[in-house]
Amino acid sequence: MLKATGISVRFGASTVLEGVDFTASAGQITAIVGPNGSGKTTLLKVMTGEIPGQGSTHLNGSDIAALSPVDMARKRAVLPQAGNVAFPFTVLELVRLGLTSGLATNDADHLDHLPERALSRVGLDGFGGRYVQDLSGGERQRVQLARVLVQIWEPMLDGEPRWLFLDEPVSALDIGHQLIVMQIARDYARAGGGVVAVMHDLNLTAMFADRVTLLGEGRVRAEGRPAEVLTDHALSACYGCVLRTNTLPPAGGPWILPQATGIHP
């Protein structure tokens, strides 16, 4: 269980988050959606301990303020938005960096093969020898995901779920790889882990998320199952444009279509 209570963040005079409550359960994908500047990434950063904020965050019952970096690294891994790599690492060397902390096992043979298994999982078989700096943006994003997966490969540790925090995990990916990455997140959740993902693509959110939190101007606008949250009214009000929601077979989830004609007043 991930439980954040009363999260407020101010940068100078501007309020980024105002009294946000957020919960996520293990075994599910919980998506955070909302327009640019609504505070999605900031909320994720507060809950992963990257930036301080008012309020408290409890991960599996422990206040994250009281956890050491190593304890945190054992419980959760974080995929940030694109960042640069300072030195010319090969793909294998970079993914292997995920083996630094909080390993679930000492089995050297298993750990030795983990980077290649993670690379295979994200669709980068045979990329181990390439230089990270020579890859495309989407390939780099998947290399980072492989590194993150290596860090918390087993979704459960000591009877506790581990957590995958994803900040716009599919933003640089083509449609095929978007599905691969979302499926990895789903499999992680189905195996008992928890997944919290900041998402831009509402349709992928509708397709894969078990719960959705809709943020607008630093506050929670709606929270619930995708069909409850992703509605014409809530989305149009939040995103400031006319969005039509339909139901598509076969899953019966919502399907969001922007209307080019109507910019919301």
Binding site: E50, P69, M72, A77, V78, P80, T100, G102, Q151
Partner: peptide, 9 residues
């Protein structure tokens, strides 16, 4: 930030 996420003080 990434180093901190990976358990580095």
């Amino acid at each position: 930030p990434v180093a901190a996420h990976m358990g580095i003080h």
